[in-house]
Design a binder for these strands. Structure first.
Lengths: 113, 113
DNA sequence: TACTTTATCAACTATTCAGTTGTGTAGTTG
DNA sequence: CAACTACACAACTGAATAGTTGATAAAGTA
């Protein structure tokens, strides 16, 4: 995919909104917990250590963004990853972070030369 | 690159911070303006229509995050992209958005069937 | 020197939003 | 039915931050 130049304002807004949705530690944690398999809200509360209301709220944000899906079963609700590209984004970011750390490392190592 | 499972909290924090930095329309606009070539603060003000102080502030955030670099020349300062992975992130997000829109489109089209 | 341009810093305002508290609503169980 | 479980909604509080305003600093120019 190639991006138009310049980016239209509305698209910029959409992109920014998307990044803000995943720019929240708790939501990344939830997504990470859902990486292997779907999970109920109560399980996600245990895993993350957050309150039920808080987890529910964040899941709502992720649901509205189309990143996760939900499935009801009895009186439980199971959430699962719908948009797998989220993890590619995280990997890309981690790659960038690693490059930065490597550069810093090279600079620090150079001082002792 | 493959991510560890589960993600350590500190890494989650770093990833989230990174996403928040680019989760701001004005900063995306600035990065978009720098895609082709470096630019001075004043030029970036014209392009974005934002105040000098505001542009300078956002550039400071991007600089601290290691996404852009700066170069002084006379009484001007030129900023340029250092971390090109930013654009891959935007492309990935746009791809996700397009898939969502396509799905919506399919659903809407199905109604009139 | 005095003045202009360019960029940054600092303080303030307004907004956004994460997390909590309290409550409501299904669904299940005794 | 009542009691319980699982989840969501709404209102509130506090913290972070985007954008403005005013002042300061640095470089070039008359």
């Amino acid at each position: 995919m190639s991006l138009p130049q310049p980016l239209p304002d509305q698209l910029i807004e959409l992109i920014a909104r998307r990044f803000r949705v995943i720019g929240e530690p708790m939501r990344i944690k939830l997504l990470d917990s859902l990486r292997e398999r779907e999970a109920s809200v109560s399980v996600l509360c245990e895993v993350t250590g957050a309150s039920q209301q808080n987890v529910s709220k964040h899941l709502g944000v992720l649901l509205e963004a189309g990143i996760v899906g939900r499935r009801k079963e009895g009186n439980q609700v199971f959430y699962s990853i719908v948009d797998e590209s989220i993890f590619r984004l995280c990997e890309e970011v981690c790659g960038g972070l690693q490059r930065q750390v490597a550069e810093l490392n090279a600079i620090v190592a150079g001082v002792g030369r």
